[in-house]
């Protein structure tokens, strides 16, 4: 209680003009620095930028025969108009999608009957995701569809995580062949706030100032180096001569002076080179 009273007394004294005439206001502190913060735009989770796909659903040649009738022998001898009826153009969209899935899984298949290896599963998911992303663009208000898509994206990410742990080389090869990106979540996830972002930006700003000033100081010191070395040579010679004249023990050797001279020469050569490079 006593302490608190003392504290109160000190701070309730009438403050004279001078050193103590300021207030520390920590709450609602506003910085004077001219940092402009731009809030990053929110990207929905189903977009390729977030899901990690570098490419979307490609345009597929519609004149191809449907997957189910690809090896049909009767179709080979059939009339052109009949053939046309069995192309992707006259089939529902799911035929095009299944054609695309067959193509994507074909990029990573181990053997003709491979339907269940890790890479084929991930490739198939990738195909489905890309097809769904295209549909999502057309029907952005379909919430169930969006959830399904998000869950599939997350599942693929989980499988990629497992594959990375099991077999790193195959994981990298799969990313390359399917054109995918793997970026782990940051450890501490918090929603973006103005205050926190400004704090980080202020830190960056201060770091930059520090770096710039240090660099300027370095340049300044480098510019002063030749003059300093000349002065050093002169001083050393003076000391040596004085010691000789007074008949005292000579503490400055010729080697020491030569060393400084060499240093000066090297410095001059380096400076000339730098000037030439700049010009």
């Amino acid at each position: 209680m006593n302490n608190r009273l003392k504290f109160f007394k000190i701070f309730s004294l009438p403050i004279k003009n001078g050193i103590t005439n300021f207030q520390i206001r920590e709450y609602a502190f506003k910085s004077d620095l001219k940092i402009k913060w731009v809030r990053p735009e929110k990207i929905p989770c189903y977009k390729p930028e977030k899901s990690g796909d570098f490419e979307g659903f490609p345009e597929i040649d519609k004149t191809k025969i449907q997957l189910d009738f690809k090896e049909c022998k009767e179709l080979e001898t059939a009339d052109d108009s009949v053939k046309k009826l069995f192309t992707l153009e006259y089939a529902p969209r799911r035929a095009t999608v299944s054609h695309y899935l067959y193509e994507t899984t074909g990029k990573v298949r181990r053997h003709a009957n491979d339907y269940g290896s890790h890479e084929v599963i991930i490739a198939k998911m990738t195909g489905v995701i890309r097809a769904m992303q295209e549909t999502m663009e057309r029907f952005p208000r379909n919430k169930k569809f969006k959830i399904n898509l998000k869950e599939l994206i997350d599942k693929r990410k989980k499988y990629l995580k497992y594959l990375r742990r099991w077999d790193y080389k195959r994981f990298e090869w799969l990313l390359e062949t399917l054109n995918l990106k793997y970026k782990p979540m940051p450890l501490d996830v918090h929603w973006i706030t103005r205050k926190d972002s400004l704090r980080k930006l202020t830190d960056q700003y201060c770091d930059n100032i520090r770096k710039e000033r240090l660099e300027n100081l370095k340049l300044q010191l480098q510019a002063e180096q030749p003059a300093f070395l000349e002065e050093k040579i002169r001083a050393l010679e003076f000391i040596r001569d004085e010691q000789k004249d007074c008949g005292m023990e000579i503490t400055v050797s010729q080697e020491e002076i030569d060393k400084v001279r060499n240093q000066l020469e090297e410095l001059n050569i380096r400076n000339k080179k730098q000037e030439q490079e700049e010009s």
């Binding site: 913060w37 731009v38 990053p40 570098f54 074909g106 990029k107 990573v108 298949r109 181990r110 053997h111 890479e119 990375r164 790193y168 080389k169 195959r170 994981f171 990298e172 090869w173 799969l174 990313l175 390359e176 054109n179 995918l180 990106k181 793997y182 970026k183 782990p184 979540m185 940051p186 450890l187 996830v189 918090h190 973006i192 926190d196 972002s197 980080k200 930006l201």
Partner: peptide, 30 residues
Amino acid sequence: SRFKYDEAPPRGWQEDKKDFSHVETYMKYH
């Protein structure tokens, strides 16, 4: 189309290209 172990380059050839697990990521704030 299968993955060949003998021809695979050593780990790390996709760093900074498609695999970003070697760096600390952060939430985009600016």
